[in-house]
């Protein structure tokens, strides 16, 4: 290869380099900062350079920290419960509302409204609805002559309460993605299934759900990633309590940094969460890539045939 052609091949990289560098610094610096901080015994009053380097001590201590482990468990449980419920309800609603009836468009718009409200507002709203005496739920129960429910003051009920709030806000996300997936299904395949004798349920089970699967898996992973990071709703509604019953990880991190002033420990916690989310993200990318590759391979094979 001549020098000139070598240079030609390099030219695009030279032009791109400044932009890539800038992006890399802007993206990676804060993350690097956090990773570095997790190896320090660092107080907010200190300049980061003066903080004591403690190696993996923060990480190891956390491993043995009962409260951290519990909050990790609460987060896992929360994510699993809300995402399962949201998937079930969102997909179910989409299947139900995927039809051409008068007023459907308006109904669909109403269904996605919760998603557009700021989580902090959602938290406040539900907190007042859960209020032990003047909240709508307990007042209604009372008017029916039933005992009030200790929504936010009992460990189990408060977990249920935040789950309901999250499901209320985020089911619409699954709903619109599922609806979009449903509406882009090949109509003639569904008609063929109808002529093949499939009932409504059989069409859902054998045709619609399998064909929606790629979208559903992406929706599931996106929601999981989000559910692991939930903060505001829980912060406003229960502040993690009573006890540690709703102390999700973000809240624990927030508290560790804000109240206990242990920035290094908070950073280490964040990194545990980051690792978990990265695993999920990698799964999503690998899955997407696999779907794409498969589609590309099938297309290529079909063209050869």
């Amino acid at each position: 290869m001549t020098t000139a052609s070598k240079l030609n091949r390099l030219t695009p990289y030279l032009f791109l380099a400044p932009a890539v560098l800038l992006l890399a610094v802007a993206l990676l610096y804060p993350i690097g900062y956090m990773i570095y901080a997790s190896f320090l015994d660092w107080r907010p009053s200190q300049y980061i350079g003066e903080a004591e380097f403690v190696g993996f001590r923060n990480y190891i201590n956390l491993w043995n920290d009962e409260a951290f482990r519990e909050s990790f468990g609460v987060t896992l449980k929360f994510a699993a419960v809300v995402v399962s419920l949201e998937m079930l309800l969102g997909v179910g609603l989409a299947l139900l509302l995927d039809r051409k009836l008068r007023g459907m468009a308006a109904l669909r718009t109403i269904f996605i409204l919760p998603m557009m409200i700021a989580p902090i507002v959602v938290g406040l709203m539900w907190r007042y609805m859960y209020h032990p005496t003047v909240g709508i739920f307990n007042r209604t129960l009372k008017s029916w002559g039933l005992d009030p429910i200790p929504w936010l003051s009992d460990g189990t009920w408060s977990f249920v309460a935040v789950v309901i709030a999250d499901v209320w806000q985020w089911t619409p996300f699954i709903f619109i993605l599922s609806l979009a997936a449903l509406q882009s299904l090949p109509q003639s395949a569904l008609e063929a299934a109808e002529l093949d004798g499939a009932t409504g349920w059989q069409k859902i089970w054998h045709i619609k759900l399998p064909l929606m699967m790629p979208v559903l898996i992406v929706a599931l992973l996106l929601r999981l990633i989000d559910a692991f990071k939930v903060l505001e709703v829980v912060l406003v509604m229960t502040n993690g309590g009573p006890g540690l019953s709703t102390e999700i990880l973000s809240l624990r991190i927030f508290r560790t940094a804000q109240e206990f002033q242990e920035l290094g420990v908070a950073a280490a916690m964040s990194n545990y969460l980051l690792i978990l989310l990265m695993i999920l993200t990698v799964i999503m990318f690998v899955y997407n890539k696999a779907v794409e590759n498969r589609a590309a391979r099938l297309r290529a094979e079909a063209q050869e045939a």
Binding site: S188, E191, E194, L195, D196
Partner: peptide, 19 residues
């Protein structure tokens, strides 16, 4: 309903079940 008419149909775009 279609399924109760004892018909089989071939569609223009074949309408095979992709999965």
């Amino acid at each position: 309903a279609s399924k109760d008419r004892d018909l089989a149909m071939v569609f223009q775009d074949y309408a095979l079940y992709p999965h």
